[in-house]
Amino acid sequence: MKTRLVLVSHAPTAATRAVAFPRDEPLDAHGLADATALAQLLPRADEVRCGPARRCVQTAAALGLAPTVDDGLRDADLGRWAGRTLDDLVAERPAEVESWLTEARAAPHGGESLHDLLDRTGHWLRAVPGTVRTLVAVTHPMVIRALVVNAIGAGPASFWRIDIAPLTATVLRGDPGRWTLRTTAGRLDHAGRPGRRRAP
């Protein structure tokens, strides 16, 4: 049996809107309203999971889901960069940012390298039970990007070429040994299927 894996990115937070690396902050008022407006629009799922961060738990609740918290869906650990904007870091530490963007094993922030994130999410993807027909997972854009890279067997550089917006669904179909990317970064629509993303 093939599994349909629907990866939902959490609703916006203050950090999302400031283009900053997040801490464990809650959804902002607009993000909560956006998620609530989309409640019950996801496809019926045999299993629902979410990352442990407040923004994932709150997004799932606002969408009308009752997930199991899954630590494997936690966000990338960006260490001391949490709460900082990329623009500030580029201005202050350009060499560190450059190494992070170009070297998969670099972790100048003291947290998790891209290599480590890809390895962790690869293990998670391989552990998806083949007996589940539809699994909905509410998680983070970086985690979804890493899962897509693993699913299609792409190299680490591909991670930076994938754009995942808040409250979008990325759909993978397959089983632990073979996945197909069906839809990426589609805005949740009223039919419970990924639709076209709104322009930024």
Rank of each mutant, 00 (worst) to 15 (best):
G72L: 03
E96H: 08
E92T: 15
P52M: 13
A95T: 09
A60Q: 00
A95N: 06
P67A: 03
V48W: 00
W81L: 00
R84T: 12
D116A: 14
S113A: 11
C50Y: 07
P67Y: 01
R44Q: 15
A62W: 02
H109L: 02
T68V: 15
G83S: 09
G83M: 10
D116I: 02
A106T: 04
T68S: 13
E98N: 11
A45F: 04
R74Q: 12
D75P: 03
R49P: 01
R93I: 11
D70M: 03
V69S: 04
L86P: 09
L89Y: 03
A53D: 10
D88T: 14
R44L: 15
D77W: 00
P108R: 02
A45G: 07
D116N: 04
R93G: 04
G72R: 06
A76K: 13
E92L: 15
T102M: 05
V97G: 10
A60G: 02
G79W: 07
E47A: 15
C56S: 07
L65I: 04
L65G: 01
P67S: 06
P67V: 00
A95E: 11
T102N: 11
S113G: 07
G64C: 05
P108M: 00
D46Y: 05
R93K: 12
V97F: 08
R54C: 01
G79C: 06
P108E: 02
L73D: 02
R80F: 11
P52H: 11
P43N: 10
V48M: 01
R49L: 11
R44M: 14
R55M: 04
R84A: 14
Q58L: 09
A66G: 14
P94A: 14
P94F: 13
G64Y: 10
A62H: 07
L73S: 02
G110V: 06
L63H: 09
L41M: 13
A60N: 02
V57E: 13
D75C: 10
W100G: 02
D88W: 12
A107P: 07
R74E: 12
D71K: 06
R54I: 01
H115S: 14
D46V: 05
L73R: 00
E47Q: 12
A61R: 13
R55F: 04
L86I: 14
S113R: 09
A104E: 14
T68C: 12
G72H: 05
D116K: 04
L101W: 07
V97R: 09
A104V: 12
G79Y: 10
A106W: 03
A95R: 08
E47N: 06
G110Y: 08
V69K: 01
R54F: 01
P52Y: 10
E103W: 00
R55S: 04
P52L: 11
G83E: 10
V97W: 08
G110E: 08
T59E: 01
A66V: 12
E92C: 15
A45Q: 06
W81T: 00
V48K: 00
R80S: 13
S99H: 03
A53P: 01
L78H: 12
